[in-house]
């Protein structure tokens, strides 16, 4: 038996909006520690890892570990029927073939339940080792989204370079080229507006902008984003989900053929 009550139901709606275009089908894993998902996009270039910790739910009951295969397009259709202020409860029976999403309006005068069929998904679970990153950049998520969107009108790939001077995003295409440099700044009034660069070693990596743009659909979840990079390794683009967890996107770099 599984019963997870999330008072801020809009978070789940936003999570689905953030990943449904990248991943079609995925297993949601439920354990004592939380509600999580790990899935690759269909071309196996990017990986998304979501964690909603059990202590972030108002009520969290998970009698035994459960993996529920869901079509994210269908799940998103159902969650769109929840109001933004609604409390969402996810319910499932052990070994059942469906999951129920219950939506309660804040004043409790409207209660809906939507039952969705589960599916068998054969997916490999990847072990992600803890890594010391050469450079970690924390910046406003809206700024990162703006840069990715702007640069994708010029080119298909972006070179992200972190040095002591700042973080540089560069692209080039048929019509020309562009560079955007963000320097470290400290905002006294608002930590969310800060760009903070922690660098052990300069690092420069090339990525497909199409994927980064897809990741920025998570911008509504957090005011800040963290980019963690090491030489020749995937970048981690992380959005914290207030008080409850995170969504991390891993993207493999492009290399010289």
């Amino acid at each position: 038996m599984l019963e997870l009550r999330l008072v801020q139901g809009s978070l789940l709606k936003k999570v689905l909006d953030a990943i449904k275009d990248l991943v079609t089908d995925a297993n949601f894993d439920c354990s004592e520690s939380g509600f999580s998902l790990q899935a690759m996009d269909s071309s196996h270039v990017a990986l998304v890892a979501l964690l909603l910790r059990s202590d972030g739910f108002e009520h969290y009951r998970c009698d035994r570990n459960l993996s529920m295969g869901m079509n994210l397009t269908n799940m998103s259709k159902m969650l769109k029927c929840a109001g933004n202020d609604d409390i969402i409860t996810i319910k499932a029976d052990d070994g059942g073939d469906s999951v129920t999403f219950m939506f309660e309006s804040p004043s409790q005068d409207k209660v809906s339940d939507f039952e969705m069929k589960l599916m068998d998904i054969d997916s490999e679970h990847l072990g992600i080792p803890e890594t010391e990153y050469h450079a970690i950049v924390k910046m406003p998520s809206a700024e990162f989204a703006r840069i990715c969107r702007d640069l994708s009108t010029i080119g298909d790939t972006v070179v992200i370079s972190v040095s002591k001077d700042g973080v540089k995003f560069s692209t080039s295409g048929d019509i020309g080229s562009a560079n955007v440099v963000c320097r470290q700044n400290n905002s006294v009034d608002n930590k969310d507006n800060e760009t903070v660069i922690e660098m052990n070693e300069p690092v420069s990596l090339t990525f497909a902008l199409r994927y980064l743009n897809s990741f920025t659909k998570a911008t509504t979840l957090s005011n800040t984003v963290t980019l963690s990079m090491s030489k020749e390794l995937p970048v981690v683009v992380e959005y914290k989900i207030a008080e409850i967890g995170h969504i991390r996107f891993y993207l493999a770099p492009k290399i010289e053929d």
Binding site: M40, H44, V45, A46, L47, E124, H125, L126, G127, I128, P129, T157, T206, A208, L233, P234, Y250, L251, A252, P253, K254, I255, E256, D257
Partner: peptide
């Protein structure tokens, strides 16, 4: 030309 690597090559299958 740059080649796109697969993400699975970086992480072990569990």
């Amino acid at each position: 030309k740059r080649g796109q690597q697969s993400i699975s090559k970086f992480f072990r299958t569990q």
